[in-house]
Design a binder for these strands. Structure first.
Length: 247
DNA sequence: ACCTATGTTGATAC
DNA sequence: GGTATCAACATAGG
């Protein structure tokens, strides 16, 4: 259930297999490996080694020694598993290395991606490291609801539904506010809170573990003021917020 | 049994 | 162009 924190964890997993020669690739899932035909990714990667594991927002990629780049995305339910029990049904993309080790994109939902030479032109700067000026410019514009703007990976990347709700709650900002109407001070505050919430989530191992956001259910009380939270669809996603704290 | 859901992409409509 | 909505993917959980 990945957002930026889970993607960072996956990136760290990929680092473990850097430098190992790729001897086999399972790229038979034509949906996950689209637009490639079966065997295309295998032909491009076999004989090469991954040399660097990189991430922007939720998008992952690995560089190789004189070979193409390998792009990976976890979708809604994917994870990177190193040397795990092979799973025929849910291992959607697999690399096997000369030393016998194995890296799988394990994804029950099949919404993950694996592809060669991914194009990230449309992906905005990473939410965890975006500068103050760039954040002001890219987030504080347009008539879209603030929450929808945060979820738009072209504006900034890495924020998913839960991290967006948690961040707006901490920042005491209403998810329906038109993004372009925020003041500079509000945008700066939002950026600080977003970075802090992201760091917290990475430290806790992800936004879905434990109690990252407690009030995300119908009728729940706001942890700050006990007001019953509101629920609505904003930016196409279920949104919870406190009408008292986030006016 | 029915409804909802963590994400992205691409099509379509205003 | 900016914004909004929906379908597609496959499974789990309430």
């Amino acid at each position: 259930m990945p957002e930026l924190p889970e993607a960072e964890r996956a990136r760290a997993q990929i680092e473990k297999v850097l430098g190992r020669e790729i001897v086999a690739v399972d790229d038979r899932d034509t949906y996950v490996c689209r637009p490639h035909a079966p065997g295309e990714i295998a032909d491009a990667l076999i004989g090469h080694r991954l040399t660097k594991a990189l991430r922007r927002g939720k998008f992952l990629w690995a560089e190789t020694d004189d070979g193409p780049e390998l792009g990976l995305h976890l979708g809604m339910a994917g994870k990177i598993v190193i040397d795990g029990e092979p799973h025929e049904r849910w291992d959607r993309f697999v690399l096997e290395f000369a030393d016998g080790s194995r890296m799988a994109l394990h994804d029950r939902r099949r919404l993950g991606r694996a592809l060669i030479n991914p194009d990230f032109d449309h992906v905005g700067p990473d939410a965890a490291i975006v500068s103050r000026d760039v954040f002001r410019e890219r987030v504080g514009r347009g008539s879209m609801p603030l929450k929808a703007r945060l979820l738009d990976q072209r504006s900034i990347s890495g924020v998913g539904n839960l991290l967006a709700d948690e961040t707006l709650w901490r920042a005491k900002l209403n998810p329906r506010r038109p993004a372009g109407e925020l003041t500079t001070d509000e945008l700066d505050h939002l950026r600080r809170v977003l970075r802090a919430a992201t760091r917290d989530a990475i430290r806790k191992g992800g936004v879905h573990t434990g109690d990252f956001i407690k009030h995300r259910k119908r009728g729940a009380p706001c942890p700050r003021c006990a007001t019953t939270v509101e629920r609505a669809t904003i930016g196409g996603r279920t949104t919870f917020w406190c009408p008292n704290c986030q006016p």
